[in-house]
Design a protein around this nucleic acid. Structure first.
Length: 476
RNA sequence: GGCCUGUUGGUCAAGUGGUUAAGACACGGCCCUCUCACGGCUGUAACAGGGGUUCGAAUCCCCUACAGGUCACCA
Protein backbone atom coordinates (compact mmCIF):
# COMPACT_ATOMS: atom_id res chain seq x y z
CA UNK A 1 0.00 0.00 0.00
CA UNK A 2 1.45 3.30 -1.08
CA UNK A 3 1.20 6.10 1.45
CA UNK A 4 2.14 9.70 0.68
CA UNK A 5 1.91 12.73 2.85
CA UNK A 6 1.58 16.45 2.52
CA UNK A 7 3.45 18.04 5.41
CA UNK A 8 3.15 21.83 5.41
CA UNK A 9 4.07 24.07 8.26
CA UNK A 10 1.28 26.34 9.46
CA UNK A 11 2.75 29.58 8.23
CA UNK A 12 -0.47 30.80 6.75
CA UNK A 13 0.32 30.96 3.06
CA UNK A 14 -0.26 28.20 0.55
CA UNK A 15 1.65 29.04 -2.56
CA UNK A 16 1.26 27.35 -5.86
CA UNK A 17 4.38 25.24 -5.44
CA UNK A 18 3.03 23.77 -2.23
CA UNK A 19 -0.29 23.03 -3.82
CA UNK A 20 1.37 21.28 -6.71
CA UNK A 21 3.41 19.18 -4.31
CA UNK A 22 0.21 18.19 -2.55
CA UNK A 23 -1.41 17.45 -5.90
CA UNK A 24 1.38 15.12 -6.99
CA UNK A 25 1.40 13.40 -3.62
CA UNK A 26 -2.32 12.90 -3.93
CA UNK A 27 -2.12 11.69 -7.53
CA UNK A 28 0.61 9.18 -6.88
CA UNK A 29 -1.19 7.76 -3.86
CA UNK A 30 -4.50 7.53 -5.68
CA UNK A 31 -3.03 6.25 -8.91
CA UNK A 32 -1.78 3.22 -7.03
CA UNK A 33 -4.81 2.89 -4.80
CA UNK A 34 -2.92 4.20 -1.78
CA UNK A 35 -3.59 6.76 0.91
CA UNK A 36 -2.87 10.46 1.10
CA UNK A 37 -2.12 11.93 4.52
CA UNK A 38 -2.02 15.47 5.84
CA UNK A 39 0.44 16.18 8.63
CA UNK A 40 1.10 19.57 10.15
CA UNK A 41 4.74 20.31 10.88
CA UNK A 42 4.75 22.88 13.64
CA UNK A 43 7.94 22.15 15.52
CA UNK A 44 8.85 25.81 15.33
CA UNK A 45 6.36 27.50 17.62
CA UNK A 46 7.54 30.93 16.51
CA UNK A 47 6.21 30.51 13.05
CA UNK A 48 2.71 29.39 13.90
CA UNK A 49 0.02 31.50 12.26
CA UNK A 50 -3.48 31.21 13.63
CA UNK A 51 -6.02 29.86 11.23
CA UNK A 52 -3.51 28.37 8.86
CA UNK A 53 -4.55 24.80 9.55
CA UNK A 54 -8.07 25.72 8.48
CA UNK A 55 -6.66 27.48 5.43
CA UNK A 56 -4.66 24.40 4.46
CA UNK A 57 -7.71 22.22 4.93
CA UNK A 58 -9.88 24.53 2.85
CA UNK A 59 -7.36 24.81 0.07
CA UNK A 60 -6.95 21.06 -0.23
CA UNK A 61 -10.67 20.44 -0.20
CA UNK A 62 -11.40 23.21 -2.69
CA UNK A 63 -8.74 21.75 -4.96
CA UNK A 64 -10.41 18.36 -4.60
CA UNK A 65 -7.50 16.77 -2.76
CA UNK A 66 -9.35 14.90 -0.08
CA UNK A 67 -6.95 13.36 2.40
CA UNK A 68 -7.52 10.02 4.09
CA UNK A 69 -5.88 10.84 7.40
CA UNK A 70 -5.20 14.19 8.99
CA UNK A 71 -5.50 16.43 12.03
CA UNK A 72 -9.21 17.06 11.72
CA UNK A 73 -10.31 13.60 10.64
CA UNK A 74 -7.84 11.47 12.55
CA UNK A 75 -6.56 8.08 11.47
CA UNK A 76 -4.74 5.17 13.00
CA UNK A 77 -1.32 6.82 12.83
CA UNK A 78 -2.22 10.00 14.70
CA UNK A 79 -1.88 12.50 16.06
CA UNK A 80 -1.18 14.33 12.81
CA UNK A 81 0.18 17.52 14.32
CA UNK A 82 3.81 17.34 15.37
CA UNK A 83 3.52 19.51 18.44
CA UNK A 84 1.19 16.87 19.84
CA UNK A 85 3.74 14.16 19.20
CA UNK A 86 6.46 15.81 21.22
CA UNK A 87 7.05 12.87 23.57
CA UNK A 88 7.65 10.47 20.74
CA UNK A 89 10.75 12.16 19.36
CA UNK A 90 12.84 12.41 22.51
CA UNK A 91 12.60 8.69 23.07
CA UNK A 92 14.00 7.94 19.65
CA UNK A 93 16.79 10.47 20.06
CA UNK A 94 17.74 8.87 23.36
CA UNK A 95 17.79 5.49 21.71
CA UNK A 96 20.41 6.82 19.30
CA UNK A 97 22.41 8.25 22.21
CA UNK A 98 22.32 4.86 23.93
CA UNK A 99 23.67 3.26 20.75
CA UNK A 100 26.47 5.79 20.44
CA UNK A 101 24.98 7.29 17.29
CA UNK A 102 24.04 10.59 18.87
CA UNK A 103 25.26 12.68 21.81
CA UNK A 104 24.27 15.41 24.17
CA UNK A 105 25.63 18.83 23.39
CA UNK A 106 25.63 21.66 25.90
CA UNK A 107 27.21 24.27 23.72
CA UNK A 108 25.42 27.53 24.07
CA UNK A 109 25.24 30.34 21.61
CA UNK A 110 28.66 31.66 22.53
CA UNK A 111 30.65 28.56 21.64
CA UNK A 112 28.72 28.15 18.39
CA UNK A 113 29.31 31.78 17.52
CA UNK A 114 33.03 31.15 17.78
CA UNK A 115 32.73 29.04 14.65
CA UNK A 116 33.34 30.90 11.41
CA UNK A 117 30.64 30.96 8.84
CA UNK A 118 31.15 27.77 6.88
CA UNK A 119 32.80 25.83 9.65
CA UNK A 120 31.26 22.69 11.06
CA UNK A 121 30.54 22.11 14.70
CA UNK A 122 33.78 20.96 16.36
CA UNK A 123 32.23 18.13 18.39
CA UNK A 124 33.67 19.39 21.66
CA UNK A 125 30.78 17.90 23.63
CA UNK A 126 31.54 14.48 22.20
CA UNK A 127 34.49 14.34 24.57
CA UNK A 128 32.42 14.79 27.72
CA UNK A 129 32.57 11.88 30.14
CA UNK A 130 29.44 10.10 31.27
CA UNK A 131 29.79 11.75 34.67
CA UNK A 132 30.08 15.22 33.22
CA UNK A 133 27.01 14.64 31.10
CA UNK A 134 25.01 13.35 34.06
CA UNK A 135 26.06 16.31 36.15
CA UNK A 136 25.08 18.84 33.50
CA UNK A 137 21.77 17.09 32.88
CA UNK A 138 21.05 16.98 36.62
CA UNK A 139 21.83 20.66 36.97
CA UNK A 140 19.17 21.40 34.37
CA UNK A 141 21.62 22.86 31.87
CA UNK A 142 20.03 23.36 28.45
CA UNK A 143 21.11 20.84 25.88
CA UNK A 144 20.51 19.58 22.40
CA UNK A 145 21.00 16.10 21.01
CA UNK A 146 23.19 15.82 17.96
CA UNK A 147 23.58 12.94 15.58
CA UNK A 148 27.15 11.69 15.16
CA UNK A 149 27.65 11.68 11.41
CA UNK A 150 29.85 8.75 10.33
CA UNK A 151 32.70 9.05 7.85
CA UNK A 152 32.24 7.96 4.28
CA UNK A 153 29.73 8.97 1.71
CA UNK A 154 25.99 8.79 1.40
CA UNK A 155 24.25 7.78 -1.75
CA UNK A 156 20.60 7.88 -2.60
CA UNK A 157 18.30 7.39 -5.50
CA UNK A 158 15.74 9.98 -6.45
CA UNK A 159 13.08 8.99 -8.94
CA UNK A 160 13.39 12.31 -10.74
CA UNK A 161 17.01 13.30 -10.30
CA UNK A 162 18.57 9.88 -10.30
CA UNK A 163 21.58 8.67 -8.38
CA UNK A 164 23.13 11.26 -6.07
CA UNK A 165 26.18 10.79 -3.90
CA UNK A 166 27.63 13.21 -1.41
CA UNK A 167 30.59 13.06 0.90
CA UNK A 168 29.66 13.01 4.59
CA UNK A 169 32.34 15.66 5.18
CA UNK A 170 29.77 18.10 3.89
CA UNK A 171 27.46 17.33 6.75
CA UNK A 172 27.39 18.80 10.22
CA UNK A 173 26.46 16.74 13.27
CA UNK A 174 22.83 17.66 12.93
CA UNK A 175 20.70 18.66 15.86
CA UNK A 176 17.90 16.20 16.50
CA UNK A 177 16.33 17.64 19.64
CA UNK A 178 16.41 21.40 20.19
CA UNK A 179 17.01 23.00 23.56
CA UNK A 180 13.28 23.68 23.84
CA UNK A 181 12.76 19.91 23.81
CA UNK A 182 11.11 19.88 20.41
CA UNK A 183 12.62 17.98 17.52
CA UNK A 184 14.13 19.70 14.51
CA UNK A 185 12.18 19.50 11.30
CA UNK A 186 14.49 16.93 9.75
CA UNK A 187 14.32 14.61 12.73
CA UNK A 188 10.59 14.83 13.28
CA UNK A 189 10.10 14.30 9.60
CA UNK A 190 12.02 11.03 9.54
CA UNK A 191 10.44 9.71 12.71
CA UNK A 192 6.94 10.55 11.56
CA UNK A 193 7.39 9.29 8.04
CA UNK A 194 8.61 6.02 9.46
CA UNK A 195 5.90 5.73 12.11
CA UNK A 196 3.19 6.69 9.65
CA UNK A 197 4.59 4.19 7.17
CA UNK A 198 5.05 6.74 4.41
CA UNK A 199 6.34 4.90 1.35
CA UNK A 200 6.99 7.81 -1.01
CA UNK A 201 8.50 11.08 0.14
CA UNK A 202 7.50 13.68 -2.41
CA UNK A 203 8.64 17.23 -1.85
CA UNK A 204 10.24 20.29 -3.36
CA UNK A 205 13.66 20.34 -4.87
CA UNK A 206 14.95 22.49 -2.01
CA UNK A 207 15.15 19.32 0.08
CA UNK A 208 17.34 17.47 -2.36
CA UNK A 209 20.57 18.54 -0.67
CA UNK A 210 19.38 17.55 2.76
CA UNK A 211 18.21 14.11 1.74
CA UNK A 212 21.50 12.46 2.78
CA UNK A 213 20.82 13.65 6.32
CA UNK A 214 17.54 11.81 6.26
CA UNK A 215 19.15 8.64 5.02
CA UNK A 216 21.80 8.78 7.71
CA UNK A 217 18.97 8.84 10.20
CA UNK A 218 17.14 5.95 8.56
CA UNK A 219 20.41 4.05 8.59
CA UNK A 220 21.07 4.80 12.25
CA UNK A 221 17.68 3.31 13.11
CA UNK A 222 18.04 0.56 10.50
CA UNK A 223 14.76 1.62 9.00
CA UNK A 224 13.65 1.17 5.45
CA UNK A 225 14.36 4.21 3.30
CA UNK A 226 11.33 5.55 1.42
CA UNK A 227 11.18 6.27 -2.28
CA UNK A 228 12.24 9.87 -2.91
CA UNK A 229 10.64 12.09 -5.49
CA UNK A 230 11.94 15.64 -5.60
CA UNK A 231 10.02 18.15 -7.64
CA UNK A 232 11.44 21.02 -9.68
CA UNK A 233 10.59 24.52 -8.59
CA UNK A 234 7.84 26.68 -10.02
CA UNK A 235 9.09 30.15 -10.92
CA UNK A 236 7.18 33.33 -11.56
CA UNK A 237 7.00 35.04 -14.95
CA UNK A 238 10.36 36.70 -14.27
CA UNK A 239 12.02 33.38 -13.66
CA UNK A 240 12.32 33.95 -9.93
CA UNK A 241 11.20 31.70 -7.14
CA UNK A 242 7.58 32.50 -6.34
CA UNK A 243 6.91 34.29 -3.10
CA UNK A 244 4.21 36.28 -1.45
CA UNK A 245 6.60 39.17 -1.10
CA UNK A 246 7.05 39.51 -4.85
CA UNK A 247 3.30 39.62 -5.23
CA UNK A 248 2.98 36.17 -6.72
CA UNK A 249 -0.43 34.66 -6.51
CA UNK A 250 -1.41 32.01 -4.03
CA UNK A 251 -4.14 29.52 -4.79
CA UNK A 252 -6.64 31.73 -3.00
CA UNK A 253 -5.51 34.79 -4.90
CA UNK A 254 -6.05 32.98 -8.17
CA UNK A 255 -9.55 31.97 -7.17
CA UNK A 256 -10.24 35.56 -6.18
CA UNK A 257 -9.05 36.61 -9.62
CA UNK A 258 -11.74 34.45 -11.15
CA UNK A 259 -9.90 31.26 -11.97
CA UNK A 260 -11.84 28.06 -11.43
CA UNK A 261 -10.25 25.64 -8.92
CA UNK A 262 -10.38 22.80 -11.47
CA UNK A 263 -8.57 24.94 -14.01
CA UNK A 264 -5.81 25.85 -11.57
CA UNK A 265 -5.35 22.22 -10.56
CA UNK A 266 -5.29 21.17 -14.20
CA UNK A 267 -2.71 23.81 -15.04
CA UNK A 268 -0.32 23.14 -12.20
CA UNK A 269 -0.48 19.42 -12.92
CA UNK A 270 1.14 20.31 -16.24
CA UNK A 271 3.93 22.32 -14.63
CA UNK A 272 6.63 19.72 -14.19
CA UNK A 273 4.75 16.77 -15.55
CA UNK A 274 3.51 15.83 -18.98
CA UNK A 275 1.08 13.14 -20.05
CA UNK A 276 2.00 10.41 -22.50
CA UNK A 277 -0.35 11.81 -25.14
CA UNK A 278 -1.00 15.38 -26.21
CA UNK A 279 -4.11 15.98 -24.18
CA UNK A 280 -3.93 18.94 -21.82
CA UNK A 281 -7.35 19.16 -20.28
CA UNK A 282 -7.80 16.68 -17.45
CA UNK A 283 -10.35 16.21 -14.73
CA UNK A 284 -8.99 15.06 -11.40
CA UNK A 285 -10.08 11.44 -11.98
CA UNK A 286 -8.37 11.52 -15.37
CA UNK A 287 -5.23 12.87 -13.77
CA UNK A 288 -5.31 10.08 -11.22
CA UNK A 289 -5.58 7.55 -13.97
CA UNK A 290 -2.88 8.98 -16.19
CA UNK A 291 -0.39 10.34 -13.71
CA UNK A 292 2.93 8.64 -14.05
CA UNK A 293 5.83 9.61 -11.80
CA UNK A 294 8.36 8.64 -14.45
CA UNK A 295 7.19 11.53 -16.62
CA UNK A 296 8.16 14.21 -14.11
CA UNK A 297 10.66 16.77 -15.35
CA UNK A 298 13.79 18.05 -13.65
CA UNK A 299 13.90 21.60 -14.89
CA UNK A 300 12.09 24.38 -13.07
CA UNK A 301 9.14 25.89 -14.89
CA UNK A 302 7.63 29.35 -15.04
CA UNK A 303 4.06 30.03 -14.08
CA UNK A 304 2.28 31.42 -17.13
CA UNK A 305 -0.97 33.21 -16.43
CA UNK A 306 -1.87 33.31 -20.11
CA UNK A 307 -1.96 29.56 -20.39
CA UNK A 308 -3.93 29.31 -17.16
CA UNK A 309 -6.36 31.82 -18.64
CA UNK A 310 -6.76 29.65 -21.72
CA UNK A 311 -7.40 26.59 -19.57
CA UNK A 312 -9.93 28.55 -17.56
CA UNK A 313 -11.74 29.43 -20.79
CA UNK A 314 -11.69 25.79 -21.82
CA UNK A 315 -13.34 24.82 -18.56
CA UNK A 316 -15.99 27.48 -18.95
CA UNK A 317 -16.76 26.37 -22.49
CA UNK A 318 -17.15 22.73 -21.64
CA UNK A 319 -19.47 23.38 -18.74
CA UNK A 320 -22.99 22.02 -19.26
CA UNK A 321 -25.41 24.93 -19.85
CA UNK A 322 -27.02 24.45 -16.43
CA UNK A 323 -23.69 24.37 -14.66
CA UNK A 324 -22.63 27.50 -16.48
CA UNK A 325 -25.91 29.20 -15.60
CA UNK A 326 -25.28 28.52 -11.94
CA UNK A 327 -22.29 30.84 -12.27
CA UNK A 328 -23.51 33.24 -14.93
CA UNK A 329 -27.10 33.89 -13.83
CA UNK A 330 -26.26 35.63 -10.54
CA UNK A 331 -23.87 37.89 -12.43
CA UNK A 332 -26.38 38.52 -15.21
CA UNK A 333 -29.13 39.32 -12.75
CA UNK A 334 -27.15 42.14 -11.28
CA UNK A 335 -25.72 43.28 -14.61
CA UNK A 336 -29.05 43.38 -16.49
CA UNK A 337 -31.89 45.27 -14.82
CA UNK A 338 -34.20 45.57 -17.82
CA UNK A 339 -37.28 43.42 -17.17
CA UNK A 340 -38.27 40.69 -19.59
CA UNK A 341 -34.81 39.83 -20.85
CA UNK A 342 -34.25 36.13 -21.37
CA UNK A 343 -31.15 35.72 -19.26
CA UNK A 344 -30.85 32.02 -19.95
CA UNK A 345 -30.31 32.70 -23.63
CA UNK A 346 -27.93 35.54 -22.80
CA UNK A 347 -26.02 33.06 -20.68
CA UNK A 348 -25.76 30.76 -23.65
CA UNK A 349 -24.52 33.55 -25.92
CA UNK A 350 -21.86 34.59 -23.52
CA UNK A 351 -20.43 31.17 -22.66
CA UNK A 352 -18.02 30.81 -25.57
CA UNK A 353 -16.95 34.43 -25.38
CA UNK A 354 -15.35 34.64 -21.97
CA UNK A 355 -12.39 33.27 -20.06
CA UNK A 356 -13.69 34.62 -16.76
CA UNK A 357 -17.13 35.02 -15.26
CA UNK A 358 -16.35 38.61 -14.41
CA UNK A 359 -16.11 39.45 -18.09
CA UNK A 360 -19.86 38.96 -18.49
CA UNK A 361 -21.12 42.44 -17.46
CA UNK A 362 -19.07 44.29 -20.03
CA UNK A 363 -20.47 42.05 -22.76
CA UNK A 364 -24.09 42.75 -21.87
CA UNK A 365 -23.93 46.36 -20.75
CA UNK A 366 -25.70 47.52 -23.92
CA UNK A 367 -28.92 45.77 -22.90
CA UNK A 368 -29.90 48.21 -20.18
CA UNK A 369 -28.53 51.26 -21.86
CA UNK A 370 -27.59 51.87 -25.46
CA UNK A 371 -24.05 53.27 -25.34
CA UNK A 372 -23.23 56.60 -26.90
CA UNK A 373 -21.66 55.79 -30.22
CA UNK A 374 -20.55 57.66 -33.28
CA UNK A 375 -21.87 57.42 -36.82
CA UNK A 376 -18.51 56.10 -38.00
CA UNK A 377 -19.40 52.77 -36.39
CA UNK A 378 -21.67 52.18 -39.35
CA UNK A 379 -18.80 52.22 -41.76
CA UNK A 380 -17.30 48.76 -42.07
CA UNK A 381 -15.08 47.99 -45.00
CA UNK A 382 -15.52 44.25 -45.02
CA UNK A 383 -19.28 44.52 -44.61
CA UNK A 384 -19.29 47.06 -47.44
CA UNK A 385 -21.26 49.49 -45.37
CA UNK A 386 -21.00 53.23 -45.00
CA UNK A 387 -23.15 55.87 -43.41
CA UNK A 388 -25.28 56.36 -46.52
CA UNK A 389 -26.28 52.78 -47.24
CA UNK A 390 -26.60 52.09 -43.54
CA UNK A 391 -29.13 54.87 -43.25
CA UNK A 392 -31.12 53.58 -46.20
CA UNK A 393 -31.07 49.98 -44.99
CA UNK A 394 -31.97 50.92 -41.47
CA UNK A 395 -35.05 52.66 -42.82
CA UNK A 396 -36.03 49.54 -44.74
CA UNK A 397 -35.48 47.40 -41.68
CA UNK A 398 -37.59 49.72 -39.57
CA UNK A 399 -40.50 49.48 -41.96
CA UNK A 400 -40.42 45.72 -42.23
CA UNK A 401 -39.87 45.08 -38.53
CA UNK A 402 -42.57 47.57 -37.62
CA UNK A 403 -45.03 45.51 -39.62
CA UNK A 404 -43.98 42.24 -38.06
CA UNK A 405 -46.63 40.83 -35.77
CA UNK A 406 -44.97 37.69 -34.55
CA UNK A 407 -41.83 38.83 -32.75
CA UNK A 408 -39.68 35.77 -32.47
CA UNK A 409 -36.27 34.83 -33.77
CA UNK A 410 -37.52 32.87 -36.77
CA UNK A 411 -39.80 35.61 -38.03
CA UNK A 412 -37.30 38.36 -37.44
CA UNK A 413 -34.66 36.36 -39.20
CA UNK A 414 -36.92 35.64 -42.16
CA UNK A 415 -38.02 39.25 -42.40
CA UNK A 416 -34.46 40.55 -42.54
CA UNK A 417 -33.40 37.82 -44.99
CA UNK A 418 -36.33 38.64 -47.24
CA UNK A 419 -35.33 42.26 -47.19
CA UNK A 420 -31.77 41.45 -48.18
CA UNK A 421 -33.03 39.43 -51.09
CA UNK A 422 -35.56 41.94 -52.36
CA UNK A 423 -33.03 44.78 -52.13
CA UNK A 424 -30.36 42.66 -53.78
CA UNK A 425 -27.73 43.61 -51.22
CA UNK A 426 -25.22 41.61 -49.20
CA UNK A 427 -26.16 40.16 -45.85
CA UNK A 428 -23.76 42.35 -43.98
CA UNK A 429 -25.08 45.52 -45.55
CA UNK A 430 -28.37 44.97 -43.77
CA UNK A 431 -27.29 43.06 -40.71
CA UNK A 432 -24.29 45.15 -39.74
CA UNK A 433 -26.24 48.42 -39.50
CA UNK A 434 -29.06 46.76 -37.58
CA UNK A 435 -26.62 45.06 -35.23
CA UNK A 436 -24.85 48.34 -34.71
CA UNK A 437 -28.03 50.31 -34.05
CA UNK A 438 -29.20 47.74 -31.51
CA UNK A 439 -25.95 47.31 -29.60
CA UNK A 440 -24.14 50.58 -30.14
CA UNK A 441 -20.90 48.58 -29.97
CA UNK A 442 -18.38 47.29 -32.44
CA UNK A 443 -18.98 43.80 -31.14
CA UNK A 444 -21.86 42.05 -29.46
CA UNK A 445 -22.49 38.55 -28.14
CA UNK A 446 -24.97 37.78 -30.91
CA UNK A 447 -26.18 38.95 -34.31
CA UNK A 448 -28.87 41.39 -35.47
CA UNK A 449 -31.84 39.04 -35.41
CA UNK A 450 -30.96 37.64 -31.99
CA UNK A 451 -30.57 41.16 -30.67
CA UNK A 452 -34.04 42.06 -31.89
CA UNK A 453 -35.53 39.01 -30.24
CA UNK A 454 -33.65 39.70 -27.05
CA UNK A 455 -34.52 43.38 -26.71
CA UNK A 456 -38.15 43.09 -27.75
CA UNK A 457 -40.04 44.90 -30.46
CA UNK A 458 -40.50 48.29 -28.81
CA UNK A 459 -36.93 48.69 -27.73
CA UNK A 460 -35.57 47.37 -31.04
CA UNK A 461 -37.61 49.78 -33.10
CA UNK A 462 -36.68 52.60 -30.79
CA UNK A 463 -32.97 51.91 -31.17
CA UNK A 464 -33.25 51.63 -34.95
CA UNK A 465 -35.00 55.01 -35.03
CA UNK A 466 -32.22 56.46 -32.91
CA UNK A 467 -29.70 55.06 -35.38
CA UNK A 468 -31.57 56.64 -38.23
CA UNK A 469 -31.64 59.98 -36.42
CA UNK A 470 -27.93 59.72 -35.68
CA UNK A 471 -27.08 59.05 -39.31
CA UNK A 472 -29.39 61.75 -40.62
CA UNK A 473 -27.86 64.42 -38.46
CA UNK A 474 -24.38 63.14 -39.33
CA UNK A 475 -25.04 63.30 -43.07
CA UNK A 476 -26.69 66.70 -43.01
C1' G B 1 32.96 30.06 -1.38
C1' G B 2 32.14 24.27 -0.89
C1' C B 3 28.61 20.71 -2.34
C1' C B 4 24.21 19.27 -5.22
C1' U B 5 21.08 20.12 -9.40
C1' G B 6 19.38 22.14 -13.83
C1' U B 7 19.70 24.49 -19.22
C1' U B 8 14.96 22.17 -26.27
C1' G B 9 11.02 28.35 -29.60
C1' G B 10 8.72 34.26 -25.50
C1' U B 11 6.18 30.30 -21.96
C1' C B 12 4.80 24.90 -20.86
C1' A B 13 6.81 20.82 -23.11
C1' A B 14 7.72 15.71 -26.31
C1' G B 15 12.19 13.50 -27.27
C1' U B 16 16.34 8.40 -24.03
C1' G B 17 22.34 7.56 -30.70
C1' G B 18 19.74 8.03 -37.01
C1' U B 19 12.97 12.40 -36.46
C1' U B 20 11.57 17.22 -42.07
C1' A B 21 13.18 18.26 -33.55
C1' A B 22 6.05 16.68 -31.81
C1' G B 23 2.12 19.23 -29.42
C1' A B 24 -0.05 23.34 -26.35
C1' C B 25 -0.26 28.72 -24.83
C1' A B 26 0.88 33.47 -26.84
C1' C B 27 1.60 36.05 -31.56
C1' G B 28 0.53 36.60 -37.22
C1' G B 29 -2.38 34.99 -41.56
C1' C B 30 -6.50 32.45 -43.93
C1' C B 31 -11.42 30.09 -43.78
C1' C B 32 -16.28 30.08 -41.46
C1' U B 33 -19.38 34.28 -40.33
C1' C B 34 -24.08 40.12 -39.72
C1' U B 35 -19.67 41.87 -35.26
C1' C B 36 -16.84 39.60 -31.38
C1' A B 37 -16.01 34.86 -29.90
C1' C B 38 -16.19 29.50 -30.90
C1' G B 39 -14.46 26.04 -34.54
C1' G B 40 -11.11 24.65 -38.69
C1' C B 41 -6.52 25.40 -41.46
C1' U B 42 -1.85 27.67 -41.51
C1' G B 43 2.79 30.70 -40.44
C1' U B 44 7.08 32.89 -37.47
C1' A B 45 10.07 30.82 -33.69
C1' A B 46 14.23 26.23 -30.14
C1' C B 47 18.43 21.89 -28.73
C1' A B 48 23.23 27.77 -23.68
C1' G B 49 28.64 27.83 -25.75
C1' G B 50 33.08 24.99 -26.79
C1' G B 51 35.61 20.47 -27.15
C1' G B 52 35.52 15.19 -27.56
C1' U B 53 33.37 9.72 -28.37
C1' U B 54 30.79 7.84 -32.81
C1' C B 55 29.69 6.38 -39.62
C1' G B 56 26.07 9.43 -37.07
C1' A B 57 24.78 13.38 -30.99
C1' A B 58 19.27 17.47 -28.49
C1' U B 59 20.35 12.48 -26.62
C1' C B 60 26.96 9.74 -24.07
C1' C B 61 31.76 12.19 -21.80
C1' C B 62 34.66 16.71 -20.43
C1' C B 63 35.22 22.01 -19.87
C1' U B 64 32.94 26.89 -19.72
C1' A B 65 28.80 30.09 -19.00
C1' C B 66 24.32 31.05 -16.80
C1' A B 67 20.39 29.75 -13.33
C1' G B 68 18.54 27.51 -8.90
C1' G B 69 19.01 24.86 -4.32
C1' U B 70 21.75 23.93 0.10
C1' C B 71 25.46 24.53 3.82
C1' A B 72 20.59 26.74 11.18
C1' C B 73 18.67 24.66 17.92
C1' C B 74 13.71 27.44 10.02
C1' A B 75 10.66 24.36 7.70
Amino acid sequence: MIRTRFAPSPTGYMHIGNLRTALYEYLIAKHYGGRFILRIEDTDQNRWVDGSVEAIHNTLITAGLRYDEGPDIGGEYGPYVQSRRKDIYLKYAQELVANGKAYYCFCGKECLDALTEHEKYDRRCLNLTAEEIQAKLASGAPYVIRQLIPDGETRFLDLVFGDITINNDELDDQVLIKSDGLPTYNFANVIDDHLMEITHVIRGNEYLSSTPKYNLLYDAFRWKIPVYIHLPLILNANGEKMSKRKGDASFEDLLAQGFLPEAVVNYIALLGWSPADNNEIFSLPELIEQFDETRLSKAPSAFDTRKLTWINGEYIKKLAPEAFQAMSLPVLKSAVKTPGIDLVSVSEMVQTRINFIYEIPQLVDFIDKLPDYGAELYTHKKMKTNTENSLANLKHALTVLYGLNLWDLTHIHDALAGLVESLGIKNGQMLWPVRTALSGKPSSPCGAAELCALLGKDESLKRIQMGIALLESYLM
